[in-house]
């Protein structure tokens, strides 16, 4: 009887996760198909508004700086929101240390891939 419950629970959880994952995958595919969007801004939900390409290189540099700023702000926000759930948000660590720590936290605290990328971006710039 107990095993039946486990099997049903397992099936229910997995079915829900599968549907969610498929939906998310579709969203990601649609987002990443936008070729005009620079690579860092492919992060769903954290995507700064993509600006049209400017003919001048100065404008392009400004666009890149704006995207970088937006990513950093979003990364800091995710950092405070996710890390602060369990402990005091730590000070910045060197990039390679942070890359390991964030992978550890991805497993331990089940941080999403998107949050992981944004936090890593923020912590390593």
């Amino acid at each position: 009887m107990g095993r039946r419950y486990i099997l049903l629970c397992f099936l229910g959880v997995m079915a829900g996760l599968t549907f969610s994952a498929i939906a998310q995958e579709r969203t990601n595919s649609a987002t990443s198909s936008n070729a005009a969007t620079p690579a860092p801004t492919r992060v769903a939900g954290a995507t700064p508004a993509a600006k049209p390409a400017s003919p001048s290189s100065a404008a392009t540099a400004e666009d890149a700086a704006a995207v970088e700023r937006a990513l950093r702000v979003e990364g800091e926000k995710r950092f405070r929101t996710n890390c602060g759930r369990c402990h005091m948000a730590p000070h910045k660590f060197p990039p390679r240390v942070m890359a390991t720590a964030i992978r550890h936290m991805r497993v331990r605290a089940m941080i999403t891939d998107e949050d992981m990328r944004l936090i890593l971006h923020y912590m390593t710039r």
């Binding site: 690579a39 860092p40 990039p95 390679r96 240390v97 942070m98 890359a99 390991t100 992978r103 891939d113 992981m116 990328r117 890593l120 971006h121 390593t124």
Partner: peptide, 9 residues
């Protein structure tokens, strides 16, 4: 990009 930085033990 999430693996731009090589993690260290």
């Amino acid at each position: 990009q999430s693996e731009d930085v090589k993690p260290v033990p």
